[in-house]
Design a protein around this nucleic acid. Structure first.
Lengths: 212, 212
DNA sequence: CTCCATAACTTAACGGTGTTAAGTTAGGTT
DNA sequence: AACCTAACTTAACACCGTTAAGTTATGGAG
């Protein structure tokens, strides 16, 4: 109620403005290409003001990542109401890809760059909760597919199947991010590649429908 | 004959020493973490001496990449004599994974780090030649599998199928390199994951063998 | 044999980077 | 009115990749 509260609010407002400016620049030009000075310019503060709100450049990106990955989990929630578990896997793969296309630099940092895992203490995402944890969401769909007899009997390990599906989709995305400008390979469009991957994975996991 | 030839030889010797030092450091610590000054220290030259042999840091990396790609292709050559094209794809996937496990930082530099594509002009690898170009090797096996009717009729695009198989195997490897220490996921052993990926991909591509 | 051009470097420096230390200022508290 | 602290700014540090200019050894020409 007093002015101390207004101060508190203003502080978080500045914090949010830094975050927004950083996101814009990281997404547009990549983590390394963006400098603290340019982020500061954008919001008309001095470069060092950022350090009053964030420990360093890395933690800036880290914070953007967790908040944006919660958006991914939110996207997944819309898919959760799909009844058919196999269709849910298919749609999750596409949503995951869309997300990676929208936030390639976040994706790169979180899944393509080795770094010491975040201390579970201060990780905002709740592990194992499909509403916040995208991997848990995938697992729960896979589990349902296995339990309702949709997959071949040899594919009975929920974790292994989930990791295979994740790896497949990740592979398409990661190669796209790292190599899409490389003229060495005559790349098919990303959408085609993702569809092909998901189709092949699901066909490979599912019980055959027709004889030869 | 004269000493000009000895000079030429010495020049290439220094060049090779720079390359070796750079490879050691890049592989041990990653591209960004290594500075020109440290490479120079290692071989006891001044930092700027490197620029007499290489245009810049990036071109150093590119030269290392092309030479290591050739090592991978050499591994593939041993597989080339396998008759069955589908088995060849399977074995190529495993060999590719072995290469990545043996040289994880090489792999990271080559396939997980975006960098401007090499000018085809000065690329030592002959594109499309399966003996030098690992991607072309994969394509040729896939092409043979398609042409001998091993795959379902909808999978008729050699490039698309090759890119899918590559992406699948890459996904397993890349997640392993970037995330294998992450306790968030209860990882299955790498060998199991690679086998699962290749099995699922090949089953998904192949004509079904049994009815349900 | 001398002179000189060139190759193969080194030293110094430039403009940039992330980050820290020290100084400043506005505003609430006592 | 005096003071204290939050929220900054300015100055500076230790790096970075890269370039310009200077140095030294050496092979070749006259």
């Amino acid at each position: 109620m007093g002015p101390t509260e207004r101060r508190q609010r203003e502080r978080e407002e500045v914090r949010a403005r830094i975050l927004d400016a950083a996101r814009d620049l990281f997404v547009a030009e990549g983590f390394d290409a963006v400098t603290m000075r340019r982020i500061a310019d954008r919001i008309e503060y001095s470069p060092t003001a950022i350090y009053f709100h964030f420990k360093d450049k890395e933690s800036l990106l880290q914070e953007l990542c967790t908040s944006d990955f919660q958006k991914l989990a939110a996207q997944f929630l819309k898919i959760a109401r799909i009844d058919d578990p196999v269709e849910r896997v298919r749609r999750a793969g596409i949503a995951y890809c869309d997300f990676a296309v929208e936030h390639p630099n976040h994706y790169r940092l979180m899944f393509m760059t080795p770094h010491p895992p975040i201390d579970p203490e201060d990780n905002a995402i709740e592990r194992g909760n499909p509403e916040q944890d995208a991997y848990a969401f995938l697992c729960s769909a896979i589990r349902e597919a296995i339990e309702t007899g949709r997959f071949r009997p040899e594919h009975d390990d929920v974790e292994l199947v989930s990791q295979t599906v994740w790896a497949g989709v990740h592979g398409v995305i990661a190669l796209n991010i790292a190599k899409h400008t490389d003229p060495w390979v005559d790349w098919r469009p990303l959408k085609k590649r993702i569809k092909s991957m998901i189709d092949v994975l699901i066909d490979g996991l599912s019980k055959p429908k027709r004889s030869r």
